[in-house]
């Protein structure tokens, strides 16, 4: 396994705000590495540092064996970055935008034109390539935004929430493109705050919040962290004492007046627990059952829910 991206002890603050607090991770060639975290978690700040745009306060970034501090320009040549905001020339056509971005990376002439055509085909926008970007739908803009970072056939691709604010169909197309890139050996960092996306396409996932990576690994490894247990959350008009004896030998994750969260080994024990709960006649407002999933992992490691 070749390590394409090695990040150590990376930190960056904006005044009082500690956006990234000493994170470290490695990404292997051909891997899709996901950054899963809520708004303000520090995903974009990390991407900005990886792209050489933002200087870290401390820590090191090594990409394809080159140190960012000394080889920024060489690194940027082999990297494709898809920014979170759509950054395109609205007045230029989709094709002209791609010609510009490809040219910026040193492509010229026939090579540039062929690369642009390939990129347009990849995101299925050949038909609209001549129209100004301002006439595109949100999903089409996202797709051009995506391929503007791919024209120069980068080895490493950083995608910062590339599916933000688009409909499910367009999202699936983008996810397919990303998967295809990984199949062709590209190394990819993919940030998102959508659990399903992370589950669906990432080989490994880092759970990030408040500038800290709380856990990272494959989906299976992460699920293992929560002990592969079913998480049941009950809310209602009861006191902590009322429910404590009901729990029995189940593991209590969280308990307070009006809310109880327990981890149960399997479905049978879950059924027994809920049966017992209802037979007490306690006032229950809601019950949420979560199979072992990234969502429960997120809840477990960060202590809060990740909402879209």
């Amino acid at each position: 396994m070749t390590e394409m991206i090695v990040v150590k002890e990376l930190s960056r603050s904006f005044g009082e705000i500690r956006a990234v607090r000493g994170i470290g991770f490695t990404v292997a060639r051909g891997e899709i590495f996901g950054f899963l975290g809520p708004n303000g978690a520090g995903k974009t700040t990390t991407i900005s540092m990886l792209s050489g745009l933002l200087r870290p306060d401390s820590g090191s970034i090594t990409i394809d064996g080159m140190d960012m501090a000394s080889h920024g320009r060489d690194i940027r040549r082999i990297m494709g970055i898809i920014p979170q905001e759509i950054a395109l020339y609205e007045e230029l056509s989709g094709r002209d935008n791609l010609l510009f971005w490809g040219g910026l990376y040193g492509l010229a002439g026939g090579e540039l034109r062929d690369s642009v055509d390939r990129a347009l085909e990849l995101v299925e926008l050949i038909d609209r390539a001549k129209d100004p970007v301002r006439t595109y739908s949100g999903g089409m803009k996202r797709r051009i935004n995506l391929c503007a970072g791919l024209v120069h056939d980068p080895k490493i691709i950083l995608l910062d929430e590339p599916t933000l604010g688009i409909d499910p169909q367009a999202r699936i197309r983008i996810l397919d493109v990303v998967k295809g890139l990984a199949d062709r050996g590209k190394t990819i960092i993919y940030t998102t705050h959508y659990l399903e996306e992370a589950e669906h396409i990432c080989d490994r996932i880092a759970i990030i919040d408040e500038g800290t990576i709380y856990a990272s690994g494959t989906l299976a490894e992460l699920v293992e962290l929560v002990g592969g247990k079913i998480m049941v959350t009950v809310s209602g008009g009861f006191g902590a004492g009322d429910v404590r004896e009901l729990v029995g030998d189940a593991e209590i994750d969280h308990i307070e007046n009006g809310e109880l969260r327990v981890k149960l080994l399997d479905r049978d024990s879950t059924g027994r627990f809920l049966g017992g709960l209802f037979s007490t006649g306690l006032h229950v407002d809601g019950v949420a059952i979560r199979e072992p999933s990234l969502e429960s992992v997120f809840l477990q490691v960060t202590g809060r829910e990740l909402r879209d």
Binding site: S51, G52, L53, R73, R76, R77, M79, I81, P83, E85, I86, A87, L88, Y89, W101, L104, Y105, G106, A148
Partner: peptide, 14 residues
């Protein structure tokens, strides 16, 4: 404002 400059800054252009 539109993020274009930032994107240019992420390219090899210094």
């Amino acid at each position: 404002q539109s993020g274009l400059l930032k994107r240019i800054g992420m390219s090899p252009a210094g």
